[in-house]
C-alpha cells in the first residue's frame, strides 16, 4: 500500500480531507478504501452548490463488487467536483490521493478538521 500523504486527515469510514492554501477542503477516499472496493466502475458526485454536513453522505462509489456511500469529512458547500471521474472512475484505483479526488468543500467551520484522524490514527483503524 502506498504511503499516506502527511497533510491529509481522515474519517474512520475511509474518506480523506486536505485543507488547501485557499481555505477550501479537497475530499477523496483512501488507498485502503479503493483496495477494499476493487475495480471502481461508477461514481456519482454531488451537485455543485449543495450544502453538506460533516459525516453525511455526499457521493457514491461503486466497484464491480459493491456500492458504497462516500461521506464528507467536513461541513460546507460543494464548490467543485472532479467530473473527470464520471468518465474514468478507475482513476481512483490508481491515484486515490491526487487525480482521484472527489469534490471540494468551502467549509463553514474549518476547525472541524481537528476532529478528524491523523494519518497515524487512520492507519491504526485500517489495521483493526
Amino acid at each position: 500500500m502506498s504511503e499516506i500523504p502527511g497533510d491529509l486527515k481522515f474519517l474512520s469510514s475511509h474518506e480523506w480531507a486536505r485543507l488547501e492554501d485557499d481555505g477550501t477542503v479537497t475530499v477523496g477516499i483512501s488507498d485502503h478504501a479503493q483496495d477494499l472496493l476493487g475495480d471502481i466502475v461508477f461514481i456519482e458526485l454531488p451537485e455543485v452548490g449543495k450544502e453538506v454536513e460533516a459525516e453525511g453522505d455526499a457521493a457514491i462509489v461503486e466497484s464491480v463488487k459493491a456500492a458504497s456511500d462516500v461521506y464528507t469529512p467536513i461541513s460546507g458547500e460543494i464548490i467543485e467536483v472532479n467530473s473527470a471521474l464520471e468518465e474514468q472512475p478507475e482513476t481512483v484505483n490508481g491515484s486515490p490521493y491526487d487525480d482521484g479526488w472527489f469534490f471540494k468543500v468551502k467549509p463553514i467551520n474549518v476547525d472541524e478538521m481537528s476532529d478528524l484522524l491523523s494519518p497515524e490514527e487512520y492507519s491504526e483503524v485500517c489495521e483493526d
Partner: peptide
C-alpha cells in the same frame, strides 16, 4: 481467491 489484482 477473489482476485489477483484487478478483476477487470
Amino acid at each position: 481467491p477473489i482476485n489477483y489484482g484487478s478483476q477487470i
